[in-house]
């Protein structure tokens, strides 16, 4: 299946949802800094992979699907939860990519240009995630 860009996705998401993600993201970044300062970088580093916005995202997916069914005069509760489960499966695959991100950053950050390393690590996250998604679809 081809991956496409769908601009209508932006219209479906309300500004309140974006604000909520911004606040959650900001708060967890502040919290990670405080934890690293208090307990050291080894403990603070754990929170770099904290599921900060995942609960909000998965709730939004469920709500969107339910709303779509409601507009079609159908009961959408079960469909909404199935869509949320699918989103969670995607996040599980994405988190394998997150391991790749962390490995690249850990091994290269101290010796090479940090900006280049972090761009490379993000590329690794995307590549592993995409590969995992393709394998899952093939199965």
């Amino acid at each position: 299946m081809k991956i496409t860009i769908d601009l209508s996705g932006l219209r479906r998401t309300r500004s309140r949802d974006y604000s909520m993600r911004f606040v959650f993201g900001g708060l967890i970044t502040v919290a990670t800094g405080i934890i690293a300062q208090r307990y050291g970088p080894a403990t603070g580093g754990l929170f770099l992979a904290f599921p900060a916005i995942f609960p909000a995202a998965v709730t939004l997916v469920e709500k969107d699907e339910r709303e779509k069914k409601r507009l079609a005069h159908k009961q959408g509760t079960i469909r909404g939860r199935e869509a949320a489960a699918l989103d969670a499966a995607g996040a599980a695959i994405g988190s394998i990519g997150l391991i790749g991100f962390a490995v690249v950053a850990w091994l290269l950050l101290a010796d090479y240009n940090p900006i280049v390393v972090l761009c490379g690590a993000t590329g690794m996250w995307l590549a592993i995630s995409r590969l995992g998604w393709t394998i899952r679809r093939a199965l």
Binding site: L48, A57, V58, A88, W133
Partner: peptide
């Protein structure tokens, strides 16, 4: 769904 585990905070 992959973006639910994006390395944004990291």
């Amino acid at each position: 769904g992959l973006f639910g585990a994006a390395p944004s905070v990291a």
